[in-house]
């Protein structure tokens, strides 16, 4: 018997545009997400990731174009869509004055989870994210990683078909980030959900089955991580010289490729890297200050497509600071 693999698109977005006044946050994007996969939106701060999620999860109205989940239009059939999705928002949406368990109970009631199922699912969810023992602690005592895990658990209580994760690891330390990812990649198999996630960390996007790179509201490219890296056409060689202008034209003559410059460093792709290095050094002689070789990363894809580096660190610190200021003000304003 022959099995045909029939991809089923669960999310469909067509020519979606979202404007805030004069600012176009999402600029005519189209894509599909297949059932049971992890789909990633990768792009810098302000690219339009959160706005897209906002439209898909029915909180924002699109300016034009359409988005649908399981065939239900996100703008017109909001309540159908809401039933089949779970979301972990970029900023935490837990009630910090309630316990972990109470937050889950609150969610279970909102989604009308049957009474007979409620306790079982809540216990299961707490166990799944390793918070069973902390279930009766107030959420305000939780660390960032614990809150994130609790939010993922909450998002799954009503058994959604699609789980949205908006920058799930933002503001977490590297160890916690890694743990959270180990746990997220398990979700499609364990819970039979499709995952739509956003991130501005290039390395995190590697876990996705398919990635859309988004910048300034536009999807620049879309494909599996391997496909995207293949577009780089091999390795990337970075060369620093005492005279970059001359070196650039020399190398371009030598290999007939385009050489770009970023932060005082030349870089070129589409080559068999290890073999090229000796040739470059021979051709440029003493003017070479350094040469390094890099396997292609998603960062290189972004760089190639936009001509800009994606600086994730600037982004996260700003957002974390904002979150801290809020928490601080909250404690001081309420008392």
């Amino acid at each position: 018997m022959v099995h045909f693999y029939m991809p089923v698109p669960i999310i469909k977005v067509q020519n979606l545009i979202k404007k805030y006044g004069n600012l176009t946050a999402v600029s005519d994007i189209s894509f599909e997400v297949e059932q049971g996969t992890i789909f990633g939106f990768l792009g810098p701060n302000g690219a339009g990731k959160t706005t897209t999620i906002g439209i898909l999860c029915t909180l924002l109205a699109p300016t034009s174009g359409s988005a649908s989940i399981f065939g239900h239009d996100c703008a017109r059939e909001s309540s159908e869509v809401r039933k089949s999705i779970g979301i972990v928002f970029q900023d935490t949406t837990l009630d910090k004055d309630l316990t972990a368990r109470e937050n889950l109970v609150f969610h279970a009631y909102l989604y009308d989870v049957k009474k007979s199922e409620r306790d079982r699912r809540i216990n299961e969810a707490l166990t799944f994210v390793g918070l069973y023992d902390r279930g009766d602690d107030l959420v305000k005592k939780f660390s960032g990683g614990m809150k994130r895990r609790l939010e993922v658990a909450r998002g799954l209580i009503h058994r959604p078909k699609v789980l949205f994760l908006d920058e799930p690891t933002l503001g977490l330390d590297p160890q916690t980030r890694a743990n959270l990812w180990d746990f997220i990649v398990e979700l499609p198999r364990r819970h039979n959900v499709t995952i739509f996630m956003t991130t501005h960390y290039m390395d995190e996007a590697e876990v996705c089955d398919r990635i859309a790179i988004i910048d300034r509201g536009k999807i620049i490219t879309i494909g599996t991580p391997e496909e995207l890296k293949k577009t780089i056409g091999g390795d990337v060689i970075y060369v620093k010289t005492s005279d970059n202008r001359r070196a650039k034209s020399e190398i371009e003559k030598l290999f007939r490729v385009e050489v770009s410059e970023q932060d005082g460093e030349l870089f070129l792709t589409s080559l068999k890297g290890d073999a090229c290095i000796p040739e470059i050094i021979r051709a440029l002689g003493d003017s070479v200050l350094s040469v390094r070789l890099q396997r292609p990363t998603l960062n290189d894809v972004f760089l190639k497509m936009t001509g800009r580096e994606m600086r994730s660190e600037d982004v996260s610190s700003g957002d974390t600071l904002k979150a801290e200021v809020r928490t601080y003000r909250r404690h001081h304003d309420r008392s």
């Binding site: 928002f89 949406t93 809020r326 909250r330």
Partner: peptide
């Protein structure tokens, strides 16, 4: 207003309730 500021309102608004 607190719920909006601290996010819980979003959790309520995405739920399938009128």
């Amino acid at each position: 207003i607190w719920d909006k500021e601290f996010g819980l309102m979003k959790e309520i608004l995405v739920a399938p309730v009128s």
